[in-house]
Structure formats: C-alpha cells, structure tokens
Design a protein around this nucleic acid. Sequence first.
DNA 1: TAAAAATACTCCATAGGTATTTTAT
DNA 2: ATAAAATACCTATGGAGTATTTTTA
Lengths: 311, 311
Amino acid sequence: MNFRDLEYLIALDQHGHFGKAAQECHVSQPTLSGQFKKLEQELGVLLLDRKAKGVVLSEAGKAILERAKRITAELNQIHEIGRFHQNPRAGSLRIGVIPTVGPYLLPHCLKNLRKGFPEMKYYFHEMKTNEIIHALHERRIDLGLLALSVHEERLEEKVIYKESFYLAVPKGHQGGKALPVNEKWLLNEQLLLLEEGHCLRDQALKLCQDRRMSEMTNFRASSIETLRAMIEIGEGVTPVPELIALAWMQQAAEIDLLPFSTPVPQREIGLIYAKHSIRRELFNELADIIATSVATLIKKTSKRSITLPVY
Amino acid sequence: MNFRDLEYLIALDQHGHFGKAAQECHVSQPTLSGQFKKLEQELGVLLLDRKAKGVVLSEAGKAILERAKRITAELNQIHEIGRFHQNPRAGSLRIGVIPTVGPYLLPHCLKNLRKGFPEMKYYFHEMKTNEIIHALHERRIDLGLLALSVHEERLEEKVIYKESFYLAVPKGHQGGKALPVNEKWLLNEQLLLLEEGHCLRDQALKLCQDRRMSEMTNFRASSIETLRAMIEIGEGVTPVPELIALAWMQQAAEIDLLPFSTPVPQREIGLIYAKHSIRRELFNELADIIATSVATLIKKTSKRSITLPVY
DNA sequence: TAAAAATACTCCATAGGTATTTTAT
DNA sequence: ATAAAATACCTATGGAGTATTTTTA
C-alpha cells in the first residue's frame, strides 16, 4: 500500500464514481481501477459496493476512510514541517475566521501580514466557531481566528485584542433617551439577532439577557449584512462588537452606534491552534501584527475604546 | 514518499545507526542510506545529525518522527480492519495487563479465550496502568486489562468483575484477635506495599488510610512476589485482591488471608479500549469469557466472595 | 445502447540489491 | 586502521499509461 491508494479511496468516497475520482487524482480511470483493486486484494476486503450508478463505500471502506483521512492530514503536516525548516517564515497558513471578524478585521491586517511574512501564503476560510474547532482537530486548517475562550483540551489560545460592544439602532432612534445605554433604556426595544451557530448571536443574547431584554422571536438574520439592513429600515436594535461598529459608522449613514453603560460588555478575539505546534512562535508574531493593525485602525478613527491586552 | 520511508525514520531513531536500522527493516544499509537521503531531499530538510558514532534525529526529524509513528499506527489499524472484515473472530489482539492481575487471572482464562476465538492471536504485555493508557492512545495495544475506573476521555471502559480485598498476614500472626479484620485489629500492624506506579499500591494505601493505618516507610516491594516473601518471613501485612489471595492460599503455606470487616474493600477489574472501536463487540464477548472463567475459578475453590457484575 | 468499470498489455520510474569508495575517529 | 555511511551501478517490481472488452440499467 502507498499514500496514493489512500487518496484514491478518499476521492472515490467523495465522487462515488471511478472516472471522476480518477480525474481528481490526475490519473486515468483504468489506473485507478487497477490500483484500487490491488488495494482491496491486499487488505482482503471489498472497500466499495459497486452499484449500477457509481459506487458507495462498504462498511470496511468507511472505517478505513477515516484512518486514510487522518494519515493524509499527518502527511501534509510532515511536508509542512519540511517547508517550515527550510524557511520558518514561508510556507502556507490555512486560517479559519468567524464571519463577524473576517470582513471587518482582515482588510486592515492583510498588508501588514504580507509585510511581516512576504513569502507566506495565506488561505482564509470563513467558518463558524464549531467548524473552526472541528477543522483544527482534523488538521484541515492551521489557525483559527475567533472569539475566545473555546476551552478545548488540545488547542492553545492566544488573545489578540478585546473589543467593546455598541448598540446599533436606526438613525435618530435614540429620541430623548440619555446615553450610555442602560437597562432602562432597553425597555421595549426590539432585539434582532443572527441565526443559530454564530458566536456573536450567543454573545449578544447573553449581554442582553443580563440587561433583562429578550429576543425578537419571529426573525433571525442569516448574516451580519441582513442584520444591518433590518436595523436600517427601523425593525429593531442589536449589539455589535467594536470593529463592526467602526465599519458601520463609516458606511451606514442610517445607523447610530451607541455606547453601553458600565460594565461595558466586551469580547476577546484571538487565535487558536494545535497545542505544541512547531509554528507557535510564528503564530504569536502573527498575533502581534494583527494587534498592531487593530491599534492603528482604532487610532486612525480617533477612538480608543478597544483595549489591547497586556502581554 | 511512502510508508516504508517512515519506518526507516523510526528505525533510525531507535538504533541511531544506519546498519542496525537497515537490519531491523530487512534491507541493506546502502538501500536505507539511499532512500533516506531521497526522503531528506523531498522534504528539503536534514532529518539526521550525522555524528561520528552513529546518528541522532534533528529537530525536524523529531517533529516528523511523531507524525510518522501516528501514521504507522493508523496504517496498522487499516490492515487490522481488513483482517477483521475477513473474519471478525480472527486477527491479533495486543493486550496490556497490570502485574497484579495478569499472572493470577490469565492462566485461568487462556484456554477459554482460545476456545472462544480459536483463530485469534493473543499478545499479552505486562504493563502498569499509566503505561497501558499511553500505549492505547498511541495504538500500540488494542486492549487494556486493569483496575477501573481510569476516567479517560477517549477510552471506553467495561467492567468484568469485582474482587474483595483480604489481609495477607504471616501464618499464625492472627493470634487471639477476632475476625473480621477491623480498624482496631490493624493497630500496630506493619503495612508493606508495592513501589510507586502499581495501582495496587494506591488501592491498598487508600483502604488502609480509611482504616487509619499508615505505611511502613523504609520499604517498598518492587513486585508482588517480593511482597509475599516479606510477609512470609514475618515482616508485615498487606491487603491483596481476591485472585491473588486465592493463589496464595494454595501456594503459600506461610501466609494467612483474613477477611476485612464491612464495608469490605473491593476493586473493579475490566477492559479499556479506544472509543467506538470497530471490535467493540468482540471485546465485550472477550469480557464475558473472562467473567465466566473467573466465576468458574471461584466456584472451584468453593468461595463466593467475588461479585460478578450485573449486565 | 450508453455509460461505467474491468481487463490486457506496454513502459519506465524507482525501490532494492551488490560492490566499492569515502569519511571520520 | 577500522567502522560506518555514502556512492556507483544494476535489476526487477509495480504504478501508470492506452486500447479494448465486459457489464448492467
């Protein structure tokens, strides 16, 4: 058996079709058929149920598929270690970023990241928190950029910055009410939230419940942009973290961003990665670059409400 | 790269010597040299520090070694899955057994195990509890047979039987004291224990401390046999689990085994194995065979003090 | 009768062998 | 001077190709 055979198995599982799997693996269909048959003979068990239309993994095939994926992931790591030792500042980084951070943070960091690591290739994937954790465990990504803490046994966390929440309301919605936004202020406000799965939903829900405010039950936004649109047309209010607030202040003329009363709700944004990763130091440098970028962004917009962590 | 190259790396790490590593891998020294050089070129990094006397893994080598071991373990599993699907009752089982169970339990089970699974190959390894857990995580063994519970996240436990403790004392040591052994009985007794690392040591220590008795500080037995010898020459007493007690009753004329007062101290012996193992059912059958063997053993010696668990 | 997988065969890249040289104490 | 690793060169297994046949909805 060789590594290639395991890739064939993975491709067959994905496509359920010898021809397509062969294409994906860049070999001819007979090659894949032949090699796969040899694999089955070597293992002494049929790995596929050959159906009329395509093929499906047998029970043994599924059990072996799992291991094959793990082996492939470990093999990728080995190659990455090779590249790393040739040049620790080069190689590639696959980064999972939550949707409520990515679009608001990355544009301000990318130039600095490129300057910091000119030979590094960055691959950003927008994922929800649980997807990031899962992908990290399966070594499909190297880094997660999300709201901490996730309390995962085998992952290491590194805080980059803290951001305060602001209450996003329709323009002029404040009326005569005094700032900052306190519990009384929130009475009778319609609370709009993201749909399940977004960590921002949980964070917002918690901070509003702390202030005895409950969710608008008949609506859940599937994206931040939907949420913004709903607020702009006056359907309700929602708490948003600072970087989103900054973006909205500049883009959305129809939304006001109001500060909360103390204790000002905050969330911590940071990195997670496999414990004892060989690229630990690299990740920490990367965190510093992001922290600096955020600090610059805040300074530029003449605000100082983001608190950078003390190292 | 292929699987063989990873075996070469593992062998080179073990032997620190190309010639010996080549022998272990059943290839010639030049073959190993050549293949290994190619591997280093493929990865673009030296994996060995070539010293005058032999070789040592470089930092990159060590990092890759870890992954190589995991890959090898996964690969072994794949082959085992193949064998399993050919014949679920055949194949091989690598079993780690604690020293205070192995010699007293296995001789009574082996015949039944062979009868239950005539085509199975058994490899028993005497290991301490933490070694078993470690080896299971690294997939170097399939099963652990030890005192439960170990509370490991990724391992599954299956109780086989409970055994009571007896107090082993020098022949006639009881004197005029009444049975069963209670707290008062134990006053001024010299307590002998195994050395650190044996789970029996911890179990005995705990039950004696519950009875306000403390250890003899200037001695620790490195094996159960040493412990028995020490008791036979009148150096002290120790609690032993039932199967050891039974063995000693028959073998050691110079030791008395006395029952404890209620609550009679007990320990649970059982299996641990990787969660969701494909051989779960097999393992459970195996547990049943051991349970039956123990029950028969107890019945034969006309004792009924071992409580079999209710399934 | 079409689409998909299996078979037949050919080719060559490479893992592995033996013989030998180089290197380092 | 000796032990160990590297190099040179040869062999043969097997992975991958093209052309073709078999299978089955």
